[in-house]
Nucleic acid binder design. Structure first.
Lengths: 246, 246
DNA sequence: CGACGTGTTGATCTCTCTCAATTAGAGTGG
DNA sequence: CCACTCTAATTGAGAGAGATCAACACGTCG
């Protein structure tokens, strides 16, 4: 695999990300240690792992999760290209959650002290990191609202809309044509929403039969956004459009 | 109400918080704009409010929450003295969650650009803020695991232990004597765990009748931590003991 | 003393889980 | 090209944790 220099990072081209000065890019690049590939289904960070490095997801999907000792698993959030991995664990601390690759992924690996260096050298980027972290928390907040207070139908409608939008923002055509790539299995959806696999399947089918969405060949297409949004109790739209990169 | 200078902040004395240099304290104090009191049950930040300032909880309890349009409420996490309020909303953005006072509280009010100033002037403190934010996220992660995958009994046991420890860390005697102050109503517990009020009450009673805990006169005492921890599926102990202030 | 908020408890009701089986598709080896 | 295997998706049936509905107890407060 070729290591991509940050200056040529494909993510930079996306309107979703902030532009950066040459100095900033140089700094980021100097902190980048490596670039690795992880196959689908494999672990990126194990629960309880110590001294995990800091990653950035360059391509593919991943997810953060926690498990109980008897195996029950809760997916905390899904990770898309551009997302950070590993800010949570204070350096030298055990990771409180695991991270698994959902599809084949490539990751940028940063020095463990990259976070601190970033803050020290460019407060601007440090501030962005704070904001990004706060933003990820708000994603988890949304899921918690779903899992705690929405019915199965509502949870699934919400997830479909939110994920669709996140993925669409990374695509040139915004998923207008075929919909957006959607590598989740129903087990992932179930674990992300605190539902059983069977009930997830039945609910998903019900919504599909009603013509609200279609998942096929690894693609998700929303067929009736209005109905989905009504179920999800999403007001107008409500999701940020821009965020800082790294 | 007297405005307390940061140099005399009572929180600084607690072993839980990091020591700070005089320069850092001076900076923090220069960013502090005011100090306000909010009565129990009153709102600190409304859902959707724009341009909310940055607060720090000086005394009392509060909580972050989100609601659906039909009134269903999910409490995202409980806030104790020393916690930040309002880092999430990007300046000038609408707050994605509300914050209510649970008991009478006093808050330090900071300039809206305090976060940025902190990063700019002292990367060290900026870094702390990033870490604190990540830490708060991990608290929400834990709750999401509970709400998504634990039974009612397990959720309540988990909440009691986690809250007890957080509060105890702020007390001189660690709650050894009477237990710890516990101003939550059962409705708060229910909304924090994604349960109905009635079921929360029944489960709470069941645990109390089994002699696992006692809630009385606004105090919580854990009577059988082992049993509670077994229910909660908490490994050894697992919670940080130190964190940076501001 | 009546109103109200919080806590309790009993009686249903139902959404979601668990258990079981079947189908469909991809990959493998002979 | 076909049996064999594995995983993901489906569907039906029965069971159960937790929700909803209804009352009542108790303390505080105006």
């Amino acid at each position: 695999m070729k290591i991509i220099p940050c200056s040529a990072c494909p993510l930079r081209a996306l309107p979703l990300f902030h532009p950066h000065s040459g100095t900033e890019l140089a700094l980021i690049e100097s902190l980048k240690k490596n670039q690795i590939a992880v196959e689908a289904e494999h672990s990126v960070i194990r629960e309880g792992q110590t001294a995990a490095p800091l990653y950035t997801l360059l391509s593919g999907w991943a997810f953060r999760f926690k498990t109980l000792s008897d195996g029950r698993r809760q997916i905390l959030n899904f990770l898309l290209p551009g997302d950070f991995i590993g800010v949570q664990q204070k350096m030298g601390d055990a990771s409180a959650h695991g991270v698994d690759a959902l599809s084949d992924v490539t990751l940028c690996v940063f020095r463990r002290d990259a976070l601190w260096e970033l803050h020290r050298a460019t407060p601007e980027l440090g501030f962005n990191v704070t904001w990004l972290t706060a933003h990820e928390e708000s994603v988890v907040d949304d899921t918690l609202l779903s899992v705690g207070r929405r019915s199965a139908e509502e949870r699934i409608a919400t997830l479909l809309i939110v994920l669709f939008k996140r993925v669409a923002a990374l695509l040139p055509d915004g998923g207008a044509a075929r919909g957006v790539p959607f590598p989740l299995t129903q087990q992932h959806i179930a674990d992300g929403l605190g539902l059983s696999l069977v009930h997830t399947n039945k609910t998903l089918r019900k919504l599909a039969r009603r013509g609200l969405h279609r998942i096929e060949g690894g693609y998700l297409k929303l067929l009736d956004v209005t109905a989905l949004a009504r179920l999800a109790d999403l007001y107008g739209d409500g999701r940020p459009a821009t965020r800082p990169l790294i």
